[in-house]
Simulated assay, not measured.
Amino acid sequence: MNDKIKHFGDLHVPGDPLILYNIWDAGSAKAVSEAGAKAIATGSWGVACSLGFKDGETLPIDAALANLERILSVTDLPVTIDMEAGYGADPAAVGASVARAAAAGAVGINIEDKDPVTRKLFETPDAAARIKAAAASGLWVNARADLFILTPKEQHDAAVVDAVVERAKAYADAGASSLFVPFIYEAVLIGRLCEKSPLPVNILVGEAIPDIKTLAGLGVARISHGHGPWAKAMQDLGEAARAAMASLNQG
């Protein structure tokens, strides 16, 4: 593990979480770096959309890695890349893809435990094998557990948390460094997850999610903003453009 990866890992402190305001290109990386970020994280949704693709590994890996290299060229901060399900049909292919991100200079990756095409969860042993291949790169592997995404909100309960924790144990044994659980909403469930998880917990902020201070108090170690920054930037751009187009007709 090199010093930059170790430094990135040391930023994952339960109760004093690493805040990641996800970016999509070199320009947004530079803006977030200058805003005082401690690390830079891409979001696959924003990256794909900014290059004219849809989320779900439709963006070719060569384009994703070229984008990573441009981001790395404008910041000295640790950069972690969202690699969706690992860009590989099997563990060996995942390992090869992640090794390319490591060679480019990334310190970490996100990897999901569901198939980007079928949107179904991989069986736990299969997901763990993919994580093990990714972890062989030496990067910080943020293992994303998507059980809450695939479970209707009204069915979110302690049993779903416990099912995620069982997956997390397998992912930790496979070499994952942290656990990303998006779309978990209730403070009591987040607290239970942080208490039981064998890995530092990463939560995605958004509507109906407790605020950052509350998440910190629950023991969260990493907080991501996902596609929110991209969506806000595009909303602001659209509103400004509409105002500019309408200005000729004013008065």
Score class of each variant (00 low, 15 high):
5 I>N: 01
188 V>D: 15
154 E>R: 11
212 I>Y: 00
101 A>G: 07
149 I>W: 14
134 A>R: 05
169 K>L: 03
180 F>R: 01
181 V>D: 02
137 S>H: 06
171 Y>M: 03
197 S>D: 07
158 A>D: 08
64 A>W: 11
207 E>C: 04
242 R>Y: 08
188 V>Y: 05
234 M>D: 10
41 A>Y: 00
76 D>W: 10
48 A>G: 04
226 G>D: 14
112 E>V: 05
4 K>E: 04
169 K>D: 04
49 C>S: 14
88 G>N: 03
38 K>S: 12
232 K>Y: 15
1 M>Q: 05
121 L>F: 01
209 I>Y: 00
33 S>Y: 00
207 E>G: 11
213 K>F: 10
210 P>I: 02
47 V>E: 14
203 I>D: 04
91 P>D: 05
183 F>T: 09
220 V>K: 00
173 D>N: 12
110 N>D: 12
1 M>V: 02
160 V>A: 07
181 V>I: 10
57 E>H: 09
231 A>P: 02
45 W>G: 00
240 A>L: 09
30 K>T: 06
42 T>P: 08
248 L>T: 07
239 E>S: 13
56 G>S: 13
57 E>G: 08
27 G>N: 14
121 L>E: 01
212 I>Q: 02
194 C>F: 05
211 D>F: 05
179 L>Q: 02
251 G>A: 13
141 V>T: 12
86 G>R: 11
228 G>C: 06
32 V>I: 15
192 R>Y: 03
